[in-house]
Nucleic acid binder design. Structure first.
Lengths: 147, 147
DNA sequence: TCATTCTGAAACAACAAATATTGTAATGTC
DNA sequence: GACATTACAATATTTGTTGTTTCAGAATGA
């Protein structure tokens, strides 16, 4: 199963906000057109991001403001904001293994540590990338020729 | 979004097959009862695992045989067998970003490398655990007192 | 004050994936 | 051939994602 597109869409949003901040007003309609989806979907994600304190959305007038320096927002911050998994576990267990079975009643204590370590490996790598890397990468790709 | 329970169920299956191999015949019904789900679900996963060459299911007579030494089957092998993600990408992009937007047409080349690196961090950690670790852990937990 | 523009939120539909349930056919052993 | 078991197909239920519509509220500027 893939991780939902909300994560990559959120990164796309940040990229747009940063890139267009001096060029034009960035609204949910504008973003929806760049991402090629509908404005409500964008607003839902914007809601999650602002609830997490990563940006602020101006009501009425429109426009989006990133609340922290780009290098202080990691991919993990964004991921956690838009993928609210219950109790934070990446891996889903089948509920209620049979307690009468020696394997069934011990499977959790057997696997939990290992699964957590796998999840941590992913999240630690997510911490290594920040929105500033996106800004920088975008500058390199687009350079002068593609604006 | 969580990764489907097929992965943890598959690990549970291997744990049972190993633990009960000398004690009783392990059938899909037996497994379903330990995991507390239905036999068909188990069979589908068994089908994926045997298609991947990790085990062999005896038809008619019943019983399951692991085809390789436990230490030669990693968590990643199991994961890949039961989570067949199209083109192997963990992260889902929204399709067709707007090519008329400088961000939209570059978002993929901007993010792909970073996302792949995150995915690789997870998969590399998965390679570090093998089914032998499960057998060992189960032996420690259950020890002599819990059989 | 009023019109405009925009966001926030709710309701609903379409769709896909995960899981459960059931029935039937095929297979291997005895 | 009888039996136990798996394989396969069809279907239902639930849940999550995404799209669509609608309406109320907030900021701004004329």
């Amino acid at each position: 199963m893939q991780i939902s597109s909300r994560f990559t869409v959120a990164l796309h949003i940040f990229a747009c906000v940063e890139y267009f901040k001096d060029k034009c007003k960035v609204t949910s309609d504008f973003l929806a057109s760049s991402i090629n989806t509908n404005p409500v979907f964008i607003r839902r994600i914007l809601g999650q991001l602002s609830k997490a304190g990563l940006l602020k959305v101006m009501r009425g007038t429109g426009g989006i403001e990133i609340t922290r320096p780009l290098k202080d927002i990691t991919f993990l911050d964004v991921y956690k904001a838009v993928e609210p998994i219950e109790d934070g576990a990446l891996f889903h267990f089948h509920e209620n293994p049979n307690p009468a079975c020696p394997v069934g009643r011990n499977i959790h204590s057997l696997l939990d540590g290992k699964l957590l370590s796998i999840q941590n490996a992913m999240e630690d790598r997510m911490k290594e990338y920040t929105l500033d890397d996106i800004r920088e990468g975008l500058g390199e790709i687009i350079g002068g020729k593609d604006s």
